[in-house]
């Protein structure tokens, strides 16, 4: 077997996980114009919830996904109402509030769970590809399938449904959306709802894929930002590509330089993207 095959495969699996983490961030940013700095901490919260349910209640993994999704939905909806009450400049104020929320969640997680590293240790069977001298963990396959399915689902909702088209209209031009009679606040609520489900979904995957510790949210937020900048606002399919690019780059960096370089890769990519794609996060009609 070519030495690159497992590197590419694990990069794709990791990148799929990153795309799943970034989808909710991107939706909330592009529709509701909230740069949610607490994104990573919210994923962590969902991850810890999954960990507790698994550790103390022996909840099966596939139940954790819907339970955590709904739990985070119950958090993001009130958050939307809180943020809606902020005065202008809305972008800056919501940024500060979510930064505060991130610090609050970090402190709470530290108080509840201490700074210990935790991981959900599940035994995922290995899958061997017949004919090829190559096998992978079924969890990695699950990540790839889940990312493909969720991205396709979000993409279809945005492209094919009436509600999805109204969401896209809001992403493209809030003023024009209001001229057309679209209630952009309601669209923001829908984005927070969908975003909450996606953030909740990412939690158990995080707990299974990476170590849970209260400060781990920062990296998750940064990954979501990098992938979103790469993709451009409202471009669901590009999020999957962005996640894969980041996952593959990290996978190659870890293989060639060692695992301590992994986090540095996303930071370096963020700087590179901001240099070469400064319009990455800009909105079409910022006034």
């Amino acid at each position: 077997m070519w030495v690159g095959t497992p590197i590419i495969f694990s990069g794709l699996a990791l990148g799929s996980f990153y795309a799943l983490m970034a989808l909710g961030f991107s939706l909330i940013l592009s529709v509701a114009r909230v740069f949610n700095l607490a994104h990573g901490e919210m994923i962590l919260l969902s991850g810890y919830l999954a960990f507790v349910l698994w550790q103390f209640f022996q909840a099966p993994f596939f139940w954790l996904l819907p339970i955590c999704s709904l739990a985070l939905l119950a958090l993001t909806l009130p958050l939307h109402y809180l943020l809606r009450r902020l005065p202008e400049p809305y972008g800056l104020n919501s940024l500060m509030v979510t930064l505060g929320l991130a610090l609050l969640l970090q402190s709470l997680l530290l108080a509840w769970f201490s700074a210990d590293y935790r991981l959900m240790r599940l035994d995922w069977p290995a899958v061997a590809i017949p004919g090829l001298d190559f096998s992978f963990l079924s969890f990695q396959g699950l990540l790839i399938i889940l990312a493909l399915a969720v991205t396709a689902g979000v993409h279809l909702v945005l492209q094919r449904t009436f509600l999805g088209k109204a969401l896209r209209a809001t992403i493209q031009d809030r003023e024009a959306a209001q001229v057309a009679g679209i209630n952009v606040n309601q669209m923001g609520l829908v984005a927070f709802g969908l975003g909450g489900l996606l953030i909740g979904l990412a939690g158990p995957l995080f707990a299974q894929n990476m170590y849970l510790y209260p400060a781990a949210g920062t990296e998750a937020t940064m990954i979501a930002i990098v992938v979103t900048i790469f993709a451009g606002l409202g471009r669901t399919r590009n999020i999957l590509l962005g996640g894969w690019l980041l996952g593959l780059t990290q996978s190659v960096a870890v293989f060639t330089m060692g695992s301590k370089w992994r986090e540095l890769v996303s930071a370096a990519l963020l700087l590179l993207l901001l240099y070469f794609r400064p319009e990455g996060l800009s909105l079409k009609k910022e006034r």
């Binding site: 896209r168 031009d173 003023e175 024009a176 959306a177």
Partner: peptide
Amino acid sequence: PQIFPEMSAWE
């Protein structure tokens, strides 16, 4: 015109 640039005329 206040239109949605990346949506089709019909959308």
